[in-house]
Amino acid sequence: MSHPAAPKDLKSLHRFKFERILNEDTLTHTVIFLGYLPEPEEDEDVQAIVRIEKTAIDPVQVPSIFQSLSGIDKVELEQSTDIYTWMFGWLGPCRERDVKINIICPATEVHVRKYMRQEQLMVRETPELYDKIVKPFIDGFPASRTKWVENILSGLSEKNKVLVSTPDYLILPDMKWDRKTVSSLYLVAIVQDRSIRSLRDLTKKHLGLLQSIRHDAEQVVHRKWGLGKGSLRMYVHYQPSYYHFHVHIVNANYQGLMGMSVGQAHILDDIISLLEIDSDEGPGVFQKMTLTYGLGDQHGLYEDMKAALN
């Protein structure tokens, strides 16, 4: 179930009250707004974030694309679960979907900080810093922050989009993908094991799980879209955007994604290789190694990690 204030159509989107731009990215043709939406049957508004991204352009439409540059003509609801809503919009009639609209409502201050433009600090997270600062931060995350993930895993939402379903994980389209343009294909594998919160929790016993995800991802993209071996870039984020273990599965030719930055994306093949040569006894490689990554100044870990580095 989605929040009552979450918009479901163009009429409800018109009630969005713009406050300011949180961020814009000319490379990905994305702009993120902060504003408010009315709370039904309440004399108040709730904070909301709206992210609008230009979808991939169909070359066939290029000759006529400049004929429809007014406002959004119509929208179509794609999915709404918990506080997250996804829509597609049209800039005019007789066109393909022009823009993808992601809405977070109600949006907390944590969401606002996440989507703001941020200065990056490169941190070296030792196992000691993980135990002292990062693990307590992860353990303190409220269950409500991943309720939408639980809705997917339990079949309450996006059930009709699941491409691979096993007792250990699901593979389905990521909300960033328009589910049409193969060159920007973007899937995600979400594991059922709630004890794996991040890359730091992986040990040799998870080898079978990771190898199975890799195999099934290759099989499903070959079967549905004809993509062969070597056509996928599979990786894990650290720090991730949410602390429930998942693997990003992206067309290898998809360029410009910020989530593929060095210091954030760890290639699944490399993770598997490290676990294969890891010791069978004692702490695993991801419990022993120092991880270096960029941390935005609005991230909840920023101040503590910066203080620890200084």
Rank of each mutant, 00 (worst) to 15 (best):
H215N: 10
H222F: 05
D270E: 13
S279T: 01
F88M: 05
D174N: 09
I190P: 02
D280V: 00
V62I: 15
T146N: 15
Q192R: 10
Y235V: 07
I83M: 08
V182F: 06
E158G: 02
A107D: 12
N151S: 15
A308L: 08
T81S: 15
P93E: 05
R145V: 13
I213S: 05
S241C: 07
G296N: 11
Y186I: 08
E78H: 08
A5V: 10
L185T: 02
K147S: 12
N23G: 12
H237V: 05
A5N: 05
K147Y: 00
E76K: 13
E150K: 13
A143Y: 10
R233I: 00
I267E: 15
D278C: 09
I190E: 11
E53D: 05
E19H: 13
L22W: 12
K159H: 10
L34A: 12
L275K: 04
E96L: 11
W225I: 06
F16Y: 13
R179N: 11
P127M: 10
Y254N: 14
Q192H: 13
H244E: 07
Q118S: 15
F33A: 02
E276M: 08
D82A: 12
E109I: 01
E53W: 00
D139H: 00
T26R: 06
T166L: 04
D58G: 03
S68C: 00
L268Q: 07
V123T: 12
L232Q: 01
I49N: 04
R179V: 06
Q61H: 11
G35C: 11
S183P: 05
I152R: 09
D168P: 02
V149G: 14
L199Y: 10
V182C: 05
Y238K: 04
P38A: 01
W148E: 01
V285D: 05
S70Y: 00
S2Y: 01
I133L: 15
P4M: 04
R15A: 15
R20W: 01
F286N: 08
G92F: 00
D43R: 10
S157T: 03
E19V: 09
D131S: 14
T181G: 11
S154R: 14
G300F: 08
A308W: 03
Q47G: 04
S12P: 02
K114R: 07
S184Y: 02
E19D: 15
G294Y: 12
R197I: 13
Q61N: 03
D178Y: 09
G230F: 03
S80C: 11
P4H: 06
L199D: 07
R214F: 03
A143D: 15
D297I: 03
V188G: 03
E281P: 08
Q67P: 04
Y242V: 06
T26S: 14
H266M: 04
R95I: 06
W86L: 15
I103R: 01
L163V: 08
R51Y: 11
D174M: 02
I196V: 08
D131G: 08
I277M: 05
A48I: 12
L268G: 13
M116F: 03
V191Y: 07
I104W: 14
G155V: 09
S212A: 04
L274P: 00
D201A: 09
